[in-house]
Amino acid sequence: MKESPEQPIRILIAKAGLDGHDRGARVIARALRDAGMEVIYTGLHQTPEMIVQSAIQEDVQCIGLSILSGAHMVLFPEVLELLKASKADDIVVFGGGIIPRDDVVALKDMGVKEIFLPGTSTKEVIAWVKENIVFPK
């Protein structure tokens, strides 16, 4: 894995399920890229399998998953389980979307590192990623 702090963070921004709301995902992807990270955007309508496969292939440290369709309680756990099964659970998973507060708590308990709700600025997300992606020494 990467060692130098100069090495840019590689991050996968993913849209899961049938949801077509991609405004947030694309704005975040672009903001992270403008902040110097290497961003891969999956495009829409990905299955959890496709997302985990892309994350491994692209050797990312982090997956940002955007869900506004209400299917978050099914899709997040599937991504987490598939990462674990592929021994890739060192990849940090965070998310964003229309997600009720009770579900945010449940998702964090399952291992989603952070959930960003509507109204979050791109600066907050950038700062969070920089703080939470630690390259193994």
Binding site: G17, L18, T47, S69, G70, A71, M73, V74, L75
Partner: peptide, 10 residues
Amino acid sequence: ARSKGEVGRE
């Protein structure tokens, strides 16, 4: 299978 988690939600 692709409807899983999405039925009746939106």
